[in-house]
Structures are given as structure tokens and as C-alpha cells.
Simulated scan of single mutants.
Amino acid sequence: MALLNPSGAAPAAPEGGAPGPRVLLGAREDRLDSVLALARVAAHLGGLRRTGRSEGEPLPAAALVCDDAAATGRLLELGVPVVHLESGPAGPDDGGAPPGRALVRVHRPGWLPPPGPGARGARPTGILAPRRTRRNRTRSGTLVMLSLWGVPDAEAGAFAAGALRELAAAALHRTGSCTVVADTGLAGVRSALAAHPGVRVLRAAEADPDALHADAAVFLASPVLGALALAQARRAPLALLAPLGAAQRALAAQVGEVLPLPSAEDPADPGLWEPPAAGPWHLLDPALDDLRGAQRVARTLRQLALAPW
């Protein structure tokens, strides 16, 4: 687990000058959904100081951990209350189910059926929308949001060297620029795209995918929860990359039963590079999700930090 300050800024203090409680923020940097979830919740933590864990420092008042059950367990053993935020089924390195003493929250669109029994006591949050939901009026280029978390190496390598390379080349030709934001497997992605020096490849944990999306005219993404939430919150068009790995295939099948999102599998399709002004989000019942999941998780963390444990 990485300990993050997603804004890159100094820890915030509440109005009045006195520093607020210290909270530790952690996520799996190798999982796109974790990175996006942490950043979106962190945007609503005004009044709390964000901290990492260093030897000799006092323990934080509370912690937010995204998807890393092992890290949640270690913090609980130290006596730190934890809000554990889940992005879906745990992977082999996530540490299994979170300990029962954690406050478990699960983010998932309200219009999707639940994937199955979750952790005991887990509460759904709905969509974690970005704090800024507007897109820039002048948009250009293509953003590719790629998740290789939990994808077998052979499958990830074949996709990068084949479909991803063709999409990146077409994006450069059709839209003038292409930025690929990936969570893991960066060396393989950069190697596969080396023949196209105009393509930027960024590590998700070191970039701001939500801000990049606001500037992009075309959005292609792996079928992951964070990408769906971003496009829905901004009523923006989204074309899904071919699902990679079991978790993406399962989510893509569930989404396909509810929402007709286009596929990004044919770089020669002119409609891919000239998408409509908005996606098919008007087909969803707005009562199923109010897009305030990040605020709800932030409020829970704030209450945990201020209340006696």
C-alpha cells in the first residue's frame, strides 16, 4: 500500500488556524480504481491533515485505506480506526477480506446489480464522482485509461503490443494527441508504444486522470468502476477497451446488460474518434445514484477522526 497525498499540496487546516486531526490515506498504486477512489474522497477532506506513517510520529486519528485489506489489518492492530473502501472483488495480493473492526464501504454504481455477497457489514456508497464535473469547452486529443491490475502478463503484453498500439496510432492521426494513463505494467506499455513517440504514457498514481479527462475530446477506458463513474458524472461519451482479466470481463458483461456503451476495438471506426456530445447516460434512472459517494466516505472518515474510538 502506498500512502498518498493526492493533491500534492500541504496538508489542509480547518478555518480558524488550528490544525485538524491527522488522517492517513492509503491505496494500491497498482490498481486504477484504488487510485481514483482515494483522490476523489481526498478532495472532500478539508479540515483534516493528511499524513504518511513515519517512525517516531504519533499515530493518525483515523485512516482511509482503498482495497488493501492487509494494510487495514495492520493499522487496526496499531489501534488506528479505519474506513476500508472497496472497489470490487479483492485480488490475490489485497490481503483477503477486511477485518470486521473496519468500517467497510463499497463503491459501485447504483444502476448495476450487486456482484454477490460482500464483506460483512459493508455499506454501498454509490458512485465516487470527481469534485469537478465540468469538462473544458475546448477539448482535444484522446485519453486512454488503462488498467492492467490482476491481468495475466501474457494477456497484458498481447493487448499492449496489438490493440493498444493500433488505437494509439489511430488516436494520434485522428485527434492529434494521445495520453495513456495506466496503473501497472508501465514498462511493457511504454515498450509497445515506443514506435509512437507522440504518445504520452503516465502512471496513474502520479497523474490526475480526472483533470486529463476534462481536457480530452475522446475517452477510451478499460471497463473499471472509476472510468464509468467519471464518464457518468460528466455525462461524457465513453468507449470501452476490450476487457482484460476476469474482473474486467465480469464487469463489462454486467454493464452491457444495462447500458449500450460502444466498444473501442476497431481503430478504423470513424465514430470512435467523433463521439456524440454525451454518452447514453440519459437512459439511466437518476434516482439510482446521486453521485455523492465520495462526500459520504469523506464524512465517515471525518466523523471517525473526531470521535473517540
Rank of each mutant, 00 (worst) to 15 (best):
G116C: 05
L301I: 00
A122C: 05
A168Y: 04
L186C: 03
V65Q: 09
E77I: 11
A239K: 04
G198M: 03
P223W: 10
A43P: 01
G121D: 09
L220Q: 13
G162D: 06
V65P: 04
V297Y: 02
D30T: 10
R31N: 11
G118Q: 06
C66E: 03
E166W: 08
R165E: 07
G95E: 07
L112M: 02
R234W: 06
R74C: 02
L164R: 14
G279M: 04
A18K: 09
A307N: 07
A70P: 00
A242Q: 14
A239H: 08
E29F: 14
L228Q: 12
W309G: 12
R131W: 03
G245V: 03
G116L: 00
E265Q: 11
R108V: 00
T51R: 10
R105V: 00
V199M: 10
R302S: 14
L167A: 02
T300W: 12
A187N: 08
A264L: 11
H44G: 03
A250K: 09
R302I: 07
S140A: 04
V297D: 02
M145S: 15
A122W: 03
A229I: 05
W111C: 01
E55T: 11
V83I: 04
A305G: 09
L304H: 03
V255W: 06
P98H: 08
A227Y: 05
A298D: 00
A63M: 01
H196R: 15
D67I: 01
V297K: 03
L202M: 02
L238H: 02
A247T: 04
A221C: 12
P275Y: 09
G47C: 02
A42Y: 03
G271F: 12
S87V: 11
L283S: 07
P237R: 01
L306I: 11
L230F: 07
R108Y: 01
A71S: 13
G52I: 15
A12S: 13
P260R: 00
L306Q: 14
G185Q: 06
R131D: 05
D285K: 06
A9G: 13
P260I: 00
R132I: 13
A161F: 11
A63H: 01
A194E: 08
A90N: 15
R302Q: 14
L288N: 07
A62P: 06
G17N: 10
L148W: 12
A194W: 08
G88I: 05
R101K: 07
A171P: 05
A204P: 03
A102R: 05
L59W: 12
R123A: 06
L128M: 03
D289H: 04
G118K: 10
E77H: 13
F159E: 08
A252D: 14
A246E: 15
R31C: 13
L228M: 06
R134H: 14
R134K: 12
W281Y: 01
R50S: 10
D68G: 04
D30I: 04
R50W: 10
T184M: 11
L172K: 12
S34A: 04
L261S: 08
T138R: 14
A119E: 01
A194L: 00
R249I: 05
V106R: 09
L143M: 05
R249K: 07
A43E: 07
P92F: 13
A253C: 06
A205W: 10
R165S: 06
A61G: 10
L148R: 14
L212M: 01
G176P: 02
A250T: 13
D67N: 09
A242T: 13
A70H: 03
D266T: 10
P243V: 10
G162R: 14
A90V: 08
R139L: 04
